[in-house]
Write a protein that binds this DNA or RNA. Structure first.
Lengths: 335, 335
DNA sequence: TGTGCACGCTCAATCGTTTGATCACGCGAG
DNA sequence: CTCGCGTGATCAAACGATTGAGCGTGCACA
C-alpha cells in the first residue's frame, strides 16, 4: 500500500551510507569492498522500506532496458503462442521481460513507434511475411532484431526450424505404411516455410524411390486447405495419402475429404506439420509432426542476448522433431 | 543503421532552438507559442536526424511508463489470446504498449519482480485463480491493477463478463428446441465464472419452468469434461441436452458421449460457453455462446487509464453475447 | 515617453541510478 | 617518524527528457 515511492536515497539515509553503496549492494557488485555489518544494514533498510529499483532511472543510466520485444501476426494462432511461451521462459531466466505486439493491434509500424527508443534491447519477429521496406525500417530504428522461421537475403539474422526434416519424417511415415502415391498440399508460394517443407517432401520422396505425387499450393488456412484438397481429389488418380504443410490447411483438407465422400484414414491418410492441442480434438484425430516451437522462441531470446552488434546469424534450430501418430494415417486401401 | 543515438540536444542544435522547444513540439504541447517556421525547422531536424524520444528518460521525468502489464495463465489458451488482442488494440490506441507475462514463464511473483518499479502504469490480471496472498502482493507493489473475469471481496477492481446472460442464452436455445431435461456441466467449485454460469443456468431453468436437470462439476479441461459427462450419462434418466460451462470441457464431454455410443445432436445436444475457432472444427461443429473476450481486454485497459488512484470498480461488461448455432444442438429425440 | 502585455523563446532544476574518481583512516614497513 | 597502501566507504557527474519560471523584444495604448 506504499504510495510514496522509495528511492535509493531513502534507503541510504536509513542505512546511514551513501547511495552508491546501496546501489552496489543491490546490484551485487563484486568489486565492492564492504563490511558485512554494513551490508546487513543496507539490506535491512531495503527490506524495511520495500525498496524496488526504478527501472526508468536504471535504463536511462545503463542504456539497457532489460526488455525484449516480440512481434507476431496473431496471438490467437497457437503456433505463435508456443513461440511466445518459449521466449518468455528464456527471457524470465535472464531477468528480462517481454513486450509483445501483434499485427492485429496496430501493425509492426505502430508497434515500433510506440516502442520509441531504448524501450527494448532487441526485437524478435515471428512469421513476418516479406513486407517490403520492413528490413530498412527495422534497421533504421537501431534495434537488434532476429527473424524467426523465415529467412531471405536481406535478413541478416534468423533462426528457422528444420522444416525439411519435418517433411521427411511425415513422408517416411506414410511410405512405411505402404503408401506409394503421396500428394503434397504445399504452403503459399511466398512463404519461406512452405518452400522448405516442399523441398523436404521432394527429397524424401526421392529417397523413398517414389514419384512425386500431385502437389497443390494452399494458404495456411482451413479455407485454403479445403480448396486445394478438392482440386487434388478431382485429379485422375488421386493420392492415397497427403502430406499437408500446415495444420490449419489440414483442417480444411479433412473437411474437403469428407465432402468428397471419402473416409479418413481408410481411403486416404493425412499428416500435417505442427502439433497443436486441437489436432487431437479433430475427427479423426490428426497425425502431425511436432516442431519445437517453444524452443524456437527460447533460442531467439538467447541469441538476442548474446550476439555482438554486427554479428550475423542464420541458424537451423537443432531441436527435437517428432511424428505424433493419431488416427488420420493408416495403410492404403487394398484395391 | 544509426548507431549513435540522437538526443533532444542534437535536434535542438540543428534547429538552433532550445531543447525545451523541441520537447514541446514533439509532444504537441498546446500551450506552446511558436512561429510556424520555427516549428518547421524543428520538425525537419527531427526528421533529418531520425530522432526518437528516449523512453527511459521520459519515464523517469514524467513517472509514467506508457506501458501496461497483462498477466495470463497461459498464452496458448485461445480465451486469453482473445483478451490480449483486445487489450493490445486499446493500448495501441492510447499509445501504450503491453508487457505480457504468463504463469508458464516464472509465475506472477517472478513477473512482478522483473517488472520492478515504474515499469508499467497498471496491471491486468486475467483468470488469476484465488492464490492466497496475491492481493496483498499486488497492493504492496503499488501498481494499479484490475482483475478480469474474476471477482471476490478482496478484489477492489474487476471487470467480468455477463456469464449469467450467456447461460440464459444457451438454456433458452435448448428449451426453444423442445428440450425439457437440460443438464449442466458446471465449472470447478472454486472458479468465479463457474458460479456465475451456474447461477445463470438455474435462473433460466426457473424462467423456462423446467426442473434443474443433473448438475455435475467439471474442470475446464477436456479430461475433466469427459469424466463429468460420463458420470452424467450413467444416471437413471440422462438429459437430452447439456449446457457446458466451458468449451474445453465440452471437447471432452463430446468424446464421452461418443464413447457412450450416443450421437450428437440426434440423441443429445451440447452447447458450451466461449466461441473459439476450434469449435467449428470439432465433429460435429459445436454450438457455442460467444462472449466479448476482446472487449473485456479492451475495457480493462480503458479503465486502467481512467481510474483515479483509489477508485474501486466492479463492472459487468455490457458487450454483445451471441449464440452461435452449429451442428451440436437439435430438437430432442422423439421417444 | 513610459507602461503593460503578448509573443516566442531560453534557463535550469529535476527525475533515480550508476560508476569512475577520490578520500579518510589505520597499519605495517622502512 | 613518515611513506605507502589496502580497506571501506563518499562524491559528483552523467544519462535524456520535461516543465515551471524567466527574459528580451516589439507593439499598443495612454
Amino acid at each position: 500500500m506504499k504510495r510514496s515511492r522509495v528511492t535509493l536515497a531513502d534507503v541510504a539515509a536509513l542505512a546511514r551510507v551513501d547511495r552508491a553503496v546501496v546501489s552496489r549492494v543491490v546490484n551485487k557488485d563484486a568489486t565492492l569492498n564492504i563490511r558485512p555489518e554494513t551490508r546487513e544494514r543496507v539490506l535491512a533498510a531495503v527490506e524495511q522500506l520495500g525498496y524496488r529499483p526504478n527501472v526508468a532511472a536504471r535504463s536511462l543510466r545503463t542504456a539497457r532496458a532489460h526488455m525484449f520485444g516480440i512481434f507476431v501476426p496473431d496471438f490467437a494462432n497457437p503456433v505463435y503462442a508456443e513461440i511466445i511461451k518459449g521466449a518468455e521462459a528464456e527471457a524470465a531466466a535472464q531477468g528480462y521481460v517481454l513486450v509483445t505486439g501483434s499485427a492485429t493491434g496496430a501493425g509492426l509500424g505502430g508497434y515500433m513507434d510506440r516502442l520509441g527508443q531504448g524501450r527494448v534491447d532487441g526485437l524478435l519477429l515471428a512469421g513476418a511475411g516479406g513486407e517490403s521496406g520492413l528490413v530498412e525500417q527495422l534497421d533504421r530504428a537501431g534495434i537488434p532484431w532476429i527473424m524467426l522461421n523465415h529467412r531471405s537475403r536481406s535478413v541478416r539474422r534468423s533462426v528457422v526450424l528444420d522444416d525439411e526434416r519435418a517433411a521427411a519424417l511425415a513422408v517416411e511415415h506414410l511410405a512405411r505404411l505402404g503408401h506409394r502415391r503421396i500428394g503434397h498440399l504445399a504452403g503459399p508460394a511466398g512463404a519461406d516455410t512452405a518452400t522448405r517443407r516442399s523441398a523436404g517432401y521432394s527429397a524424401a520422396m526421392r529417397d523413398a524411390g517414389l514419384p512425386e505425387g500431385p502437389i497443390v499450393a494452399a494458404d495456411y488456412t482451413p479455407a485454403g486447405g479445403a480448396a486445394a484438397m478438392a482440386t487434388m481429389l478431382a485429379a485422375a488418380e488421386p493420392p492415397t495419402a497427403v502430406f499437408v504443410a500446415n495444420v490449419a490447411s489440414a483442417i480444411g483438407a479433412m473437411e474437403a475429404v469428407r465432402k468428397a465422400g471419402l473416409e479418413i484414414p481408410r481411403e486416404i491418410s493425412i499428416v500435417a506439420v505442427h502439433d497443436l492441442d486441437l489436432a487431437s480434438y479433430l475427427f479423426p484425430a490428426l497425425t502431425t509432426v511436432r516442431m519445437p516451437l517453444a524452443e524456437l522462441g527460447r533460442r531467439g531470446v538467447t541469441l538476442l542476448g548474446r550476439l555482438q552488434p554486427d554479428e550475423a546469424v542464420a541458424e537451423v534450430l537443432d531441436g527435437p522433431i517428432d511424428l505424433i501418430q493419431r488416427r488420420s494415417t493408416a495403410p492404403p486401401p487394398t484395391p
